[in-house]
Design a protein around this nucleic acid. Structure first.
Length: 313
RNA sequence: GGUGUCGUAGCCAAGUGGUAAGGCAGAGGUCUGCAAAACCUCUAUGCGGCAGUUCAAAUCUGCCCGACACCU
């Protein structure tokens, strides 16, 4: 049987130096980079998402970066499919795929080889459920879910409308319950020979101050102009309009809050987000933490990589 | 110096005699088709201080401290 493809993953919360580390590694390991970030995939969102610039790429090929129009719907399932294709392509050319990003759901799904339901979402089903929610509230829908799939229903809180709706949507559209889908989605083993590296600062305080500084830098780089474009297209940018870095500045554009307050809110949101990211990575299996933003990290990753390959032999 | 208003958690804030709402921040967590989303849990033996009235005080009384406003 063919060996599984090798895969290096660099993850961690925002502002920990994933981009520069990954480029350095790609150059040393003959690699190409695949973005694992739910917002950096979109066009026109570069400053606010801290997306790699062409200069920062230093000639290293990057995949799934800024390729999608912000008004296009996208999902984890789409991501996993495209990332798998990119990995296969890079591997076939004899290079090392390096997945880099901060979206826990995307990374976990890719690395564990989650098989999503074959059918894409039928928007009419979703809209119908949404209409029921708007008119009758969540409880009838939640009660229905408990009836159809008590096992899954009991694991989610009725206040989490999105999940209640999705579980019902899946059932109505495919006849399969979420519990069945969850059981069927997990492959017997991991699809790749993956090494996971997480970047983290010594303390929460340092992380937060790095985030604050980064936001100030973004403002200097012209975030406001970029955000205004997102603001003007907010109705069609379904996903992109909820990206941190833009929505917090909307009150400034509608003249309901000062720029200074908006920027403070933006920093706040980024800090909250970083905390949630850490929760994702903290429970990823065999992930190894390395210090964030440190020059020696590349050497450490190489060491870990070689040791892991040795142990697999 | 006088008069008045106010003082509840890191911040905002409800409560005017019956045993400290809520929001934000913070911490922890969940996650299978919008995930930078959404959601869950925890977080004041105590209401500026001290005395008093009362079965019972953040709530009433007195004094003190502090902030603000106006007056002299």
């Amino acid at each position: 049987m063919a060996d599984k493809a090798e895969l290096l993953v660099i993850c961690g919360p925002t502002a920990t130096g994933k981009t520069s580390l990954s480029v350095a590694l790609a150059k040393q390991m003959n690699g190409e980079i695949i973005c694992a970030d739910s917002m950096q995939i979109y066009q026109n969102l570069s400053i606010g998402t801290a997306r790699v610039t062409t200069a920062e790429m230093q000639g290293v090929p990057h995949h799934l970066v800024g390729f999608l129009s912000p008004d296009v719907r996208f999902s984890v399932a789409d991501y996993v499919k495209m990332a798998q294709d990119a990995i296969a392509d890079i591997t076939a050319r004899g290079k090392l795929p390096i997945v880099v990003g901060g979206t826990g759901l995307y990374i976990k799904s890719l690395v564990e080889g989650i098989q999503f339901a074959a059918q894409k979402t039928d928007l009419s089903v979703r809209e119908d459920l949404q209409a029921q929610l708007d008119s009758a509230g969540i409880m009838p829908l939640y009660a229905r879910l408990l009836q159809v799939d008590p096992q899954y229903g009991n694991t989610i809180h009725p206040n989490n409308h999105g999940r209640v709706l999705r579980a019902l949507e899946l059932y109505l559209q495919t006849g399969k319950t979420m519990s069945q889908q969850l059981a069927a989605s997990r492959p017997p083993e991991r699809p790749y020979q993956d090494v996971l590296i997480g970047l983290q600062y010594a303390t929460r305080e340092i992380l937060y101050s790095a985030i604050n500084t980064r936001v100030d830098t973004m403002m200097q780089q012209g975030l406001l102009n970029e955000a205004e474009q997102v603001f003007l297209h907010r109705d069609s940018y379904v996903t992109a309009a909820q990206a941190i870095g833009y929505k917090e500045l909307f009150p400034y554009f509608t003249q309901t809050d000062s720029l200074q307050n908006c920027v403070e809110k933006l920093k706040q949101s980024s800090r909250n987000y970083a905390k949630r990211q850490i929760t994702w990575f903290a429970r990823m299996e065999h992930l190894m933490w390395l210090p964030a933003n440190e020059t020696g990290s590349a050497a450490q990753v190489l060491k870990i990589w070689n040791e892991t390959k040795g142990s697999l032999k």
